[in-house]
Design a binder for these strands. Structure first.
Length: 582
RNA sequence: GCGCCUGUAGCUCAACGGGAUAGAGCAUCGGCCUUCUAAGCCGGUGGUUGCAGGUUCGAGUCCUGCCAGGCGCGCCA
């Protein structure tokens, strides 16, 4: 509807303003907030006033005069200081209902993405512990973004980057091993910085069952290193010494296997968790495999050959400053190990080489410092800086009993996504996550979320859908039926204020989806659905359907049908179900 | 100290890439079920949009400064 009106206005605008008309999006058109200002309103005249150096009111008058003849518009008014207010012709909105019926599940979709290939990377939590409620936010937002991009004609991959090559995996392996030692000897010697969540104990139990690690080996124990005193890195150094000791005691191969197995099991758990949450990835990219395939060396070699990187104090540096970053960065340490930064450049470069036009990363806000760096790396490798887009998601602050709770995987102090899912359900959790903009700090009040889960607006929206399903069921029970053709034939009877409001809301889905996709803002869909449900419930309470005269009943059934379709389509974009009964 | 994000009703958040009288939910007060799901509808209370300037016909939205909170500024990952 908006598009059709926009085309009409555009024709008029081109006549009045020539090339200036092209600077306007959708001809400045939007649905009027207040019905006294028409169904749709455009601020085009005001936007053009500066460029044309004329009064907005005069421009508006010219635009209106230049409007081509059409079936859509009933009347147009100009309001100070230059709004063009448009009232739709009877039948214009009603015809949208047939369009909705015809497009079905595809209503709201468009092809404006022009098959642009977008690789969406999100969650990518380190496989060192179960997902917590913060990761849940990333999962919900990232997946909805992917759905929105798919709906707008992009080719989308969902990818999870698995950091399984770094020191953290050794720390995980160590943590598990120490719990095994603890079981066998009864001596507790758990160091600061090791993972202390309950799941570590479970992994230790499983490890003892499945790997050739005997209780004897554990009892024999290992040579405990001395705890060094002083210095900031004390805990980390001690941890490294412990890892060394464990390697000595178990043998390199066995220790690595423990670490790898633990990481694998954690990842397995994460994968299942996300699947239950309705999130499925096309690819789980292992960092270790990337290393094994030589991708990182390849990148580094190329940078070195082209004379971009340089040596300084034994390390290999990347001159990020040259590309606008605040300082230069190490890619290979003095001891020969490459940094996280190095594998990130290689990883993103590899994604480009796999054919992605756009790399869309959904990252935690703590990564913002690293965005310029990676972009610089891509640029140095000859990629356009614009091929990387990063959406930062702010932290979830967990509140329990009104108190802020620190969340740390290492400390084992966190609320898991799984427990949230089990307590409030996938639909409520996803809708809650996605109804706040990612760049907003989110206060997650656990007591509130769990106790008053029925206050979640998701139920308000789902209830509308259930009511429609029930209505159509009742229709069948009464031996009634209707066809879209018959309904369309009587659609002109839909003139009640509530019916106009509902039809206006329904017609807004396509523009809402496009806007949400362009702005990478799934919360726009969530808020749209609430206002759509509002329009529906208002209509439902004011307009009887089954007891209306047959012709009106038929028209209203068509409206209800369209309402159900749009609710389903919208909820689907958020990964939320549309129940037939509640 | 420097950089990024944020500040809107008692609480949690909207406000459609500057638009018309800043809106929802929860909480609170009052009405509506002999008829399609009351997880609903209708109405009321509640705001100096952190503060101060500026740009504009028009600012919650853009710019500057201050205040407050979160995050970052490793040869950590």
């Amino acid at each position: 509807m908006k598009q059709a009106l926009g085309n009409l206005l555009d024709q008029a605008l081109r006549r009045v303003a020539g090339d200036h008309a092209r600077t306007l999006r959708h001809a400045g058109l939007e649905q009027a907030r207040d019905s006294r200002n028409g169904h749709y309103a455009s601020n085009a005249a005001m936007q053009l006033a500066g460029k044309l150096k004329r009064k907005p009111v005069d421009i508006a008058a010219d635009i209106v005069a230049a409007l081509p003849a059409n079936q859509l518009i009933d009347r147009v008014e100009i309001a100070a200081p230059g709004f063009i207010n448009i009232w739709l012709a009877p039948g214009a909105l009603q015809s949208e209902l047939q369009w909705i019926a015809r497009r079905g599940d595809a209503y709201g979709c468009s092809d404006f993405g022009a098959k642009r290939r977008v690789l969406v990377e999100f969650v990518s939590a380190n496989p060192t512990g179960p997902l917590h409620v913060g990761h849940g936010r990333h999962a919900a937002i990232g997946d909805s973004l992917a759905r929105l991009l798919e709906a707008t004609g992009h080719e989308v991959w969902r990818e999870y980057y698995v950091n399984d090559a770094g020191r953290q995996l050794s720390v995980l392996g160590l943590s598990v091993w120490l719990r095994m030692v603890e079981r066998a000897t009864g001596v507790e010697a758990f160091p600061e910085g090791a993972y202390r969540g309950e799941y570590i104990g479970n992994l230790a139990g499983r490890m003892a069952d499945e790997l050739p690690v005997s209780a004897e080996a554990a009892r024999k124990g290992m040579a405990w290193p001395d705890k060094q005193a002083g210095g900031n890195g004390e805990a980390d150094r001690y941890l490294d010494a412990l890892i060394e000791a464990a390697r000595e005691c178990l043998g390199d191969a066995l220790f690595s296997e423990i670490a790898r197995a633990a990481g694998g099991w954690v990842l397995e758990d994460i994968r299942e968790d996300l699947e239950q949450f309705g999130v499925r990835f096309d690819n789980w990219q292992s960092e270790r495999e990337l290393v094994a395939a030589g991708k990182i060396d390849e990148c580094l070699k190329r940078l070195e050959l082209e004379g971009i990187t340089y040596r300084h104090e034994g390390a290999l540096w990347f001159p990020a400053e040259r590309y606008g970053d605040e300082k230069n960065r190490v890619v290979v340490r003095a001891d020969g190990r490459s940094t996280y930064f190095a594998s990130d450049i290689a990883y993103h470069y590899a994604k480009r080489k796999r054919g992605a036009d756009l790399l869309l990363d959904v990252l935690g806000a703590d990564h913002h410092g690293y965005v310029n760096r990676v972009r610089a790396g891509l640029e140095a490798l000859g990629e356009p800086p614009s091929c990387l887009e990063v959406r930062l998601v702010q932290f979830v602050a967990l509140l329990r009993g009104g108190q802020r709770v620190a969340m740390s995987t290492r400390g084992g102090e966190f609320e898991t996504l799984r427990s949230l899912r089990e307590e409030v359900g996938v639909d409520a959790a996803r809708f809650f996550y996605v109804s706040r903009a990612g760049e907003q700090h989110l206060d997650f009040d656990l007591d509130l979320a769990k106790r008053r889960s029925s206050d979640n607006p998701v139920y308000y929206v789902q209830y509308a859908h259930a009511r429609i399903a029930s209505l159509l069921g009742k229709m069948a029970d009464r031996g009634l039926s209707f066809s879209m053709d018959e309904s369309a034939a009587h659609a002109s009877l839909l003139t009640h204020r509530r019916e106009i409001d509902l039809m206006l809301a329904l017609a807004r889905l396509p523009e809402t989806v496009e806007q949400a996709a362009v702005q990478r803002a799934p919360q726009i869909v969530a808020h749209y659905l609430i206002s759509l449900a509002q329009a529906f419930h208002g209509w439902y309470n004011h307009c009887k359907v089954l007891d209306a005269e047959p012709e009106l009943r038929s028209a209203r059934l068509g409206l209800a049908q369209a309402g159900g379709q749009v609710l389903r389509n919208g909820l689907g974009l958020l990964g939320v179900s549309a129940p037939r009964s509640m």
